[in-house]
Write a protein that binds this DNA or RNA. Structure first.
Lengths: 266, 266
DNA sequence: GACGTCCGTTCCCGAAATGCGAACACATAT
DNA sequence: ATATGTGTTCGCATTTCGGGAACGGACGTC
């Protein structure tokens, strides 16, 4: 196949296809050989080779005639999270914040220009919350969440431009920021204020407060947020109390990371 | 390279190597190009191609010059678990069992002849437990855990033989069953009794009770267990109470699965 | 400040792996 | 019995991949 002559490192087609197989098995929630071949538009024999190889490598299991992703992914995912600097130093703060506020608390970071969730906890008021209890979310855009905007605010401008170029500014609600200049103004506000909000910009009826977590050099590592229904997030709580609490948690996490880094470089 | 002429479906070497890269990045907790190339004994340029492709496919991220596995694995792992029949129908029982017993409760299944953990909860007495709080475990052997033995007891004998042939009967403590015939006798006992024990067979000082979870056809799906120190798991509690509780949980889970399957086939 | 050394990245060509189509075995349904 | 659906196997033509060598940038050293 074509290999674009102007750009980028060499891409191994076989590896790329293996990744497509993994994606497909996730999307289809398991599949047979023919089903997968049709889905990916490859031959049956190829699909079979990919599945068999992934099975030998234990990333795929076979029940009867359907192939599924194995629990190796769960192990890898947990290991990755366990070692992540934000989880290591931030988990305690997230737990405390959920305890204090009673709301949903999220810890996330940016990867490939998208938001990735690292850890989340439901505070006691958050149980039964129809928005938050929906199943695990895939990577989402950064421009309509409080954590995402907190991260964008501390990424280099060029990087923000590149992300917008790649993904656009998809509109989710009436409040979603879909204008490039408006987003940069918002970023300016966030930098001045020290935290970001999501005022029904992703889902109507849901607000959130997000604070950035940065390292000693000022580089952005991720963000933490508290979110809940507008019926509970309003007035002083929304404008004063929660921002203070969220920023406090972010600061403590930053301090913990910096101390750890400092002692490491001795 | 050689493709063993006698056996098995075709293995795609490029896919296998990509899996090796993933494994290596997990084991090394991230690596540079040269480091990875040395580790896997491949050329620098190859290592670079693999990493670049996996990065494009978002399974790998790059911080400065070190490549790491991305949080996509966490997402995939959570999704896989969320959809797993044992998690769907067993989580509630595991939570209840942890509440009732105050001990650590595990839900697992067999994949590729090894034990894979699906879900675990710490009961209130289990916190600070040095054995259980150690980090996430990779796939383990089946013959020295209560859940593993519960599963072995209901796998076809030929399958059990094949698993022993593949992995052997590694000795972990003085109590570990390392003799093939002894294991089959144990399996017989488990079948008659309805549950399996781990009496300091994996770690000295730790006992466990595990019960199999089977579908309507009698096929084994996995197992649930309660584990803790011998100081708490002994006497009537170890021989009577806990086995009853664990089997009860397994039965309720089985019933839930069977009802779901029955209604699906209408 | 020039040198050596380490890294990640690029390039190219020959060797080797992969994709595909066709055929097979087996099951189920008509 | 026949037809259609699986998953699986095989061999060949083609493409891709592996590796060596060279480039360019970042350090650290003398």
């Amino acid at each position: 196949m074509r290999e674009t002559n102007d750009a980028g490192p060499r891409q191994l087609e076989t590896v790329a296809r293996a990744c497509d197989v993994i994606d497909a098995l996730e999307e289809l929630d398991g599949a047979g050989v023919t089903e997968l071949a049709d889905y990916l538009d490859i031959s049956k024999s190829s699909a079979y080779s990919y599945l068999s190889t992934l099975r030998t490598k234990r990333l795929v299991v076979k029940d009867d005639d359907t192939y599924r992703l194995s629990l190796e992914f769960l192990y890898l995912g947990k290991t990755i999270r366990h070692r992540h600097v934000l989880f290591e130093h931030g988990k305690q703060q997230v737990d405390r914040l959920a305890e204090e506020t009673g709301e949903y608390v999220h810890l996330m970071c940016e990867q490939h220009g998208l938001e990735r969730n690292i850890y989340k906890v439901a505070g006691e008021n958050a149980v039964g919350d129809t928005y938050h209890t929906t199943k695990e979310r895939k990577a989402d855009f950064l421009h309509f969440t409080s954590t995402g905007k907190a991260v964008l605010a501390y990424l280099p401008d060029a990087r923000v431009e590149a992300i917008i170029d790649e993904y656009g500014l998809v509109k989710k609600t009436e409040n979603t920021i879909t204008d490039r200049d408006a987003l940069f103004e918002e970023i300016q506000t966030i930098r001045e204020r020290g935290y970001a909000v999501n005022d029904e910009e992703e889902v109507t009826g849901i607000r959130a407060i997000g604070a950035p977590i940065r390292d000693a050099n000022g580089a952005i590592l991720g963000a933490v947020s508290v979110s809940g229904p507008t019926s509970r997030l309003n007035g002083d709580r929304y404008y004063e109390t929660l921002p203070k609490q969220v920023m406090e948690s972010a600061n403590v996490t930053e301090a913990s990371i910096n101390m750890s880094n400092a002692s490491r470089s001795l």
